[in-house]
Nucleic acid binder design. Structure first.
Lengths: 195, 195
DNA sequence: ATTTTGTGAGTACACTCGTACTAATAAAGT
DNA sequence: ACTTTATTAGTACGAGTGTACTCACAAAAT
């Protein structure tokens, strides 16, 4: 009876349009009419998919998490190469990852003063933490992590380093292909093998 | 002839009210009427001090820079204690620094999509970079920096680490007095003395 | 005391916002 | 063909936005 109800694809398309709007216009551009225009649909249709703006913002964070998770799951690497691959998914190295990171930061900053959005932001942050822990574990299994090191400390340090490098990438330019900050990360990982 | 013209104090008071608004309500609260109410003045008076919202936002970033600079200049320390003091001025350890950092991040994120605000944000970021370089220099003069290390690399790594720890402090809670992230920074600095 | 200036309160304009409707159209399943 | 649903376009409301005014009042310098 009904018209096709591919609500999931619809929501995803809207959320992806939201990410583009967030990158181009920032938080102030994330409006019903703005996102609907970017998605090429009517405002009322967006309203049907997401009853409130908060639902849309929450779904955007979830979409980012899903996309990063999918990319990580698709990695077919081992050892140090896998570690690099894992961490590079969280840095703004190409248009897709830059898009995600800008949107994540915009919504993350919004969550500082929007308590309803905090759980979703915290969930995403916890995911990044998990990746850092896994990365160090893979490194250890590859024998490139000195067992004398404190793994808890190294995980936190890696997390902070990763966040800092990501922020720097957002600030300095669009696509820092040969960003010296990338070498900082690589060199840091190298040092973990030694004493 | 004129009434008292301490425009500087007036602007500073308005900007400080702006920081409080940014911490409490976020970017969306940084409006003419909102800031004026927080500052306890009429909206028209705010408009006289800052002709546009952009001028206000720009001045806020400048105020943050001035306040951090003043605190750093007041430090009466040497060696490792000075290094700690320098870097701790950039972390949200008390209400004042938390206020500044939240406002800095909010305006910084805004500057991602507001090109007119980018110069001011970049200027502030460059100031943080300078502090990192100076910190390592002080560490070296105190003999607690292994000369075999690459100072350029260590400065960038320290900068990223500092940013990451600061962001973590904003996310996790208000005043992370005994934040394990603080120990990460301290431990990282300790390691710089060794090979 | 007079002049000059900043403040305060208020008003106004044109805009955008989120949300909530209506009515008409298009498409799919029976 | 008919029914059911989603999408569209449009309108409406109350609220908030930046910016720009006016006008009365208060305070400092001459």
């Amino acid at each position: 009876m009904p018209r096709r109800i591919d609500a999931q694809a619809r929501s995803a398309a809207i959320a992806e349009a939201s990410l583009r709007v967030l990158e181009r216009d920032g938080l102030s551009g994330l409006s019903v009419r703005g996102v609907a225009a970017e998605a090429g649909i009517a405002a009322a249709s967006l309203r049907r998919a997401f009853a409130t703006q908060h639902a849309l913002r929450e779904f955007c964070l979830k979409l980012i998490e899903d996309r990063v998770t999918a990319r990580i799951a698709a990695l077919d690497l081992t050892g140090r190469a896998l570690v690099d691959g894992l961490l590079l998914q969280l840095l703004p190295l190409d248009k897709e990852r830059h898009l995600e990171l800008v949107a994540q930061v915009q919504l993350g900053v919004l969550s500082l003063t929007d308590s309803a959005l905090r759980p979703a932001a915290i969930r995403l942050s916890a995911g990044v933490d998990r990746v850092c822990h896994i990365a160090l574990q893979v490194l250890a299994e590859a024998g490139q992590f000195n067992q004398g090191r404190d793994s808890g400390y190294e995980a936190q340090r890696l997390r902070a380093l990763l966040d800092g490098i990501a922020m720097h990438g957002l600030w300095s330019g669009e696509l820092p292909e040969a960003d010296p900050m990338l070498q900082v990360l690589s060199r840091h990982l190298d040092e973990l093998a030694g004493p």
